[in-house]
Computed example of a mutant assay.
Amino acid sequence: MSQTATAQGANTEIVFTPAAQRAMAARGSAQGYARKIASGFPDRVTPDLRGFIAELDTAFLATVSAEGAPYIQHRGGPKGFIKVLDDKTLGFADYAGNKQYITISNLEGNDHAYLFLLDFANRRRVKVWGRARVVENDPALMEKLVDPGYRARPERAILFTVEAWDVNCSQHITARYSEADVAGAVAGLRDRIAALEAENAELRSWLGQPAKKGPAQ
């Protein structure tokens, strides 16, 4: 995935904090990241990132409380449930859930947030650093974020301002496929089997041989 952004800020320390840079230097990996440390990271949504996000049906949102307690929450929905509102802003509907409100309460005291985006089938992942905020009672915004036909009750919106993002390596990602992906692949195989059975029956007819019955369906 290309990481060329329309604008790129001096945001290295968002991704590689001073402590992280010291750890990299002590362990011999700083030189390999020297260019990124010098130039910073993309801070806007590129066409490639937009396309990647449009295919996602799952994500993980990390927040931290004012007291420093970390929390990660799964977010999901139909493909494309995370909407790109502009080149700095992502948004998604917050649907009714277990009513613990940990993410919401964390963002009240600390708006730093992080999105971990995984495409299991293609073994790709993207890390996004930024700020998040909760938006209540905004019907116009919700109309942009809610997917028609998705059977869940939206309660509010979460907007995420992108400050930096980076593509993570695919190492150790186990490929997994959704039910819809598997159904699509199986449908193609069934169509191919049906076509081959029809061709086989036609050949047998031409040779004057009785058609073989396939396995019971």
Rank of each mutant, 00 (worst) to 15 (best):
P154D: 09
W165N: 00
L189C: 12
D181T: 02
D138E: 15
E136K: 14
D147N: 13
R190I: 07
N168T: 04
V135E: 03
D138I: 01
I158G: 11
P139W: 08
E136R: 14
D181L: 00
R190C: 06
N137R: 11
T174A: 15
A140Y: 04
E136W: 12
V182N: 04
R176H: 12
W129Y: 11
A180G: 07
G188R: 03
A194R: 10
K127W: 06
L141K: 07
G184E: 08
V135T: 01
D181N: 08
E179A: 14
E155D: 12
A183H: 10
M142C: 08
A198R: 14
T174L: 12
G130C: 08
A157L: 06
A183M: 05
A132W: 04
G188C: 00
P139Y: 05
T161Q: 13
L141C: 09
L141G: 06
L145A: 05
P139D: 00
V128A: 14
V162H: 09
A140H: 03
R153H: 14
L189H: 10
W165P: 03
R151G: 10
V162F: 05
A164P: 00
A195H: 13
L159G: 04
V146D: 09
Y150K: 06
A152I: 00
E163A: 11
V182L: 15
M142S: 09
G188V: 07
D181G: 01
H172A: 12
A152K: 08
A195S: 15
P139F: 02
A164Q: 01
K127L: 14
P139A: 02
Y177R: 13
H172Q: 09
A140T: 13
T174W: 02
W129R: 11
E163V: 05
R153E: 09
T174S: 13
A180P: 05
R190P: 00
G184A: 15
V135A: 02
R151V: 09
A194M: 08
G149Y: 10
W165V: 00
T174Y: 01
D166L: 11
E197I: 08
W129S: 10
A195C: 11
L145G: 04
D147V: 06
A164N: 01
I173Y: 04
L159R: 02
I158Q: 08
P154L: 13
G130H: 08
A187L: 02
I193P: 05
A185G: 03
A164V: 00
K127C: 11
R176A: 13
G149A: 09
A140E: 03
R131N: 06
K144T: 12
R131T: 14
E197C: 03
N137T: 04
L189W: 10
G149R: 06
L145R: 05
A175R: 14
R156M: 11
A152L: 00
A132M: 07
W129E: 10
E143L: 14
A195R: 15
V135F: 02
R192G: 15
E136Y: 15
A194P: 10
A175G: 03
I193D: 15
V162N: 06
D147Q: 14
E197T: 12
E155Y: 00
I193F: 12
W129I: 07
A175T: 04
A157T: 06
A183P: 01
E179I: 14
E197G: 01
C169Q: 06
